[in-house]
Design a protein around this nucleic acid. Structure first.
Lengths: 179, 179
DNA sequence: TCAGATTCATCAAACATTTGATCATTTGGG
DNA sequence: CCCAAATGATCAAATGTTTGATGAATCTGA
């Protein structure tokens, strides 16, 4: 660092955003500080929400966040091919393959060869899996509600609108998507 | 599912948000759909941004997202105790311990026992680490800029404001934070 | 029809993360 | 002063993720 400004005494996960943006602006004049702040804030906010949900809802019930995502998709969209499950729950096919070992072992879902294409895999919730996702989702949604109360209804809609616009713009940005 | 509505043919990572919220509303009348939509959208948007950054910037350079976060913190805040690094880069002390093995092996940072407390660890970037983070951050920031262009300047500020408000409200929500 | 290309799933190795245990050092109270 | 409690770091085992390779089934075009 050219100008070695000491960091404030208590630098936290959250206050680091402000600190980092200002520091980067001073050190690297070419930086796009607006963009940096937006992406950094987005990541930190999401990280806090996920940490809370995972540690207060999922882990205590012996679940993981990725496991929840798979069971959630299967609960809402019904039995489907593994390829689709990977798509809509946001993971690679290889990652899902590994994850399925745990979920199947725990008796939450079943893997079956598809009849129309013997390469493909058909996934479906077991009875136990169906009962479990119902209860876990209720707890999950209660925590979501607690988070949502931080904003006014109008603000929540605006946040969703802005995030949707961000995603819609990702094609222009030539963003990389999962296969 | 009580009403077995077939999912639309092409259910994608992104379109699943809408599908899931509507379906959950029908199946589970007690659901807080607003909250569900907000958190789901937040997670998916962030996930897309992170996937793009990691796969187009970090992985091709042999870096990982968590490794970048650590080097980034160290670059901006300067040498510091490992405990602080874990705090501001958002990981547990145990996770950082494991991550340091890789980063140290790759010659990007150095671990030293702190002089004032021989239990504590002092972390600092090596010359190589300093040079590397500079280059990687530049590329990282260019991708951030591309994402940011999806929104108008005023919208970017509003998004940041809303996310900050969400975080500020997390104390009221009794959210769980990392130790 | 059949051989090459494509698609689906899994495996392997490296990496990162979680919880809970262990070990070393420091601190604080009697 | 000294021992118990607290603190900092690491380890161990289980889980999940990435990239790249492999094997099986399906498709395609000559």
């Amino acid at each position: 660092m050219t100008h070695n400004t000491a960091p404030p005494d208590e630098l936290t996960f959250w206050s680091f955003v402000d600190y980092a943006v200002h520091k980067a602006e001073r050190e690297l004049p070419s930086v796009n500080a607006e963009a940096m702040r937006m992406i950094l804030t987005l990541n930190r906010a999401t990280s806090m929400v996920v940490y809370d949900l995972e540690s207060s809802v999922h882990r205590p019930r012996g679940w993981t966040w990725p496991g929840f995502r798979v069971l959630f998709a299967l609960w809402l969209a019904g039995p489907m091919e593994a390829k689709t499950t990977a798509q809509i729950s946001g993971m690679s096919r290889a990652a899902l393959s590994a994850l399925l070992n745990t979920l199947e072992r725990d008796g939450l879902l079943s893997r079956e060869r598809a009849t129309h294409d013997r390469r493909a895999l058909q996934l479906s919730l077991t009875e136990a899996g169906y009962g479990a996702i119902l209860g876990v989702f209720r707890a999950h949604n209660r925590r979501e509600s607690a988070w949502a109360e931080a904003l006014e209804p109008e603000e929540r809609r605006e946040l969703v609108r802005l995030l949707n616009k961000l995603m819609a713009g990702s094609t222009d940005a030539q963003a990389k998507f999962r296969n």
